[in-house]
Design a protein around this nucleic acid. Sequence first.
RNA 1: GGGGCUGUAGCUCAGCGGUUUAGAGUGCCAGCCUGUCAAGCUGGAAGUCGCGGGUUCAAAUCCCGUCAGCCCCGCCA
Length: 612
Amino acid sequence: MYTMSELSEFGHELERTHTCGELRADDIGATVTLNGWVNRRRDHGGLIFIDLRDRSGLVQVVFDPQIDEEAHRIAHDLRSEYVIAIQGVVERRPEGTENPDLPTGEIDVRCDTLAILNVAETPPFTWLDETEVDEKVRLQYRYLDLRNPRMQRNLRIRHDAAQAARRFLSDEGFLEVETPILFRPTPEGARDYLVPSRVSPGNFYALPQSPHIMKQLLMIAGCDRYFQLARCLRDEDLRADRQPEHTQIDMEMSFVTRDDVFEVTERLFAEIWREAIGVELPTPWPRMTYAEALARFGTDKPDIRFGLELVDVTPVVAGADFKVFANVAKSGGVVKGLCAPGCADLGRAQIDRLTEFVQDHKAKGLAYFQVTDAGLEGPIAKFFSDEELANLREAFDARIGDMIMIVADEVEIANEALDWLRREMAARLDLIPEDTWAPLWVIDFPLVAWNEDEKRWDAEHHPFCMPHPDDHELLERDPGAVRAQSYDAVVNGFELASGSIRIHRRDIQERIFQVLDISREEAQRRFGFFLNAFEYGAPPHGGIAPGFDRIVMLLCGEQNIREVIAFPKTQRATDLMAGAPSPADPRHLSDLHLRLELPVTEQDEEGTGESL
RNA sequence: GGGGCUGUAGCUCAGCGGUUUAGAGUGCCAGCCUGUCAAGCUGGAAGUCGCGGGUUCAAAUCCCGUCAGCCCCGCCA
């Protein structure tokens, strides 16, 4: 190990003249100084090769005792991830030793001066091969994990996407405005992160779940067009595409219709895709109503890169002798399914596994027909007339060799199970085209949804969402049928943005509160400051909030947003590297006028019992 | 809160019909080696089998509990 005195002080003479990845044949003959990390060392005794790495890439450095004996001697002691400075001459590699896999592979740098700027422990894991390292270890040493070229690329794509968004929106007349992080509960409906106030004992800030209230206030403030790469904080459980803190490209515009929002959002996405990964996103995007999305795909975020669309055959089978179908039809459920091409030869065991699969997603079971040249066959075929079987086959447009898979259940359950089944079958049958981008708008979401537990209507999006102009009369008569002027941008089955035209008039807002059974007093208490603002000339406005992490995840081809967040949290919302959250200092708690009341675990109880 | 998968050397994993000294690859250390680029050759060090309890003469292996990571449900734009 080196003592401090053996390490080189970083001085003027060691400052880099080039980055590692930029050197090319054009630089041959140049004397260069490079700074970076030892990626790999190949010590041949006589010759020593080092792959030197910085953010720009790799370059091979050659240590030859005939060039400089001391540099060669020191190079023998180099280890992975040592930080070094080298000076040398760029030379063409001897014929036959070029490395076509490296952009710098035509040349190497023959080193005459080597300085060790810092030594390094052997890294706990390596990113030099394809091996997937346990996520625990990666997160604990995130700063090392981020040295992985893949992660470096992800950070770069994220940066390019962010810059593209900023540049585009600024050019379109959007003003970037920062909004408070210490705020109060906002109307999204997730659990808030709370911050106790020291100077106001017993009062708490809530961290914003989104800057939603603020952006509407900015419209009232005459901002006209606002955007922000905004942190949104929600204390809910995590998923592969959900972190407790995520980033939205938050946007709002005054004096616009839905189509104006669509137009600018489509161009924003196109710009991001172009700048970050060089892909031209098709525009304009197709539009699909919420109802149609559920009918055809079983979900409000359909992946339309492939077919396998769902078919509702309830009317076809309602009268059949097969009681399971008939009963479901009678009780208001649906008989619905899809046609898996070329799957007629699936074995019993595989069908059983698919049955378990849909049962895992709440369906009662999976009915199926093999399509053979004799027609539809299978264990339940005998319950159907020839005409019914023919109609079924027709409904699914099934060909010989296909397998029709059917779920009969309540609408919501059948849709959810079939959405899972559709995506699963598409993956198994390799029906999802790679490098294909299929954006669409899902529109006309219901304004409200019935909350069975509390026997009341809840806002589907949030309570400030403008109802569809054709549905205003339904508001009191049939709230569940009212469509909202809200919309989602969906790309490849991921919901990437969500927005709406907002209510800007008091009379409409009051009718909505009435439907939602929010009293004037409650509204005043929860959003009084906000509602008051609408008394002073609120312009018509609307907006959207693209989820930046999910966008970058797709751009990077990753399956998980942790891969595109520099310092993400685990599923239990902890930071394995920094050890957050952590206990608070008692004095700090006392400053905040807080006393802890921790949950008692069984172990604690046993411990207490023994000590008594 | 619930379901599933995983936890063995620094890392990736094998072993898990109970048995002597727990293995492999890679990494690491040392030596040799002048054109390698996943360098090569020789040798070496390296393990609280996640943790706790139980069954047993004997547990990485069987049982119970618990913790952690991941995926999903609930929850959540």
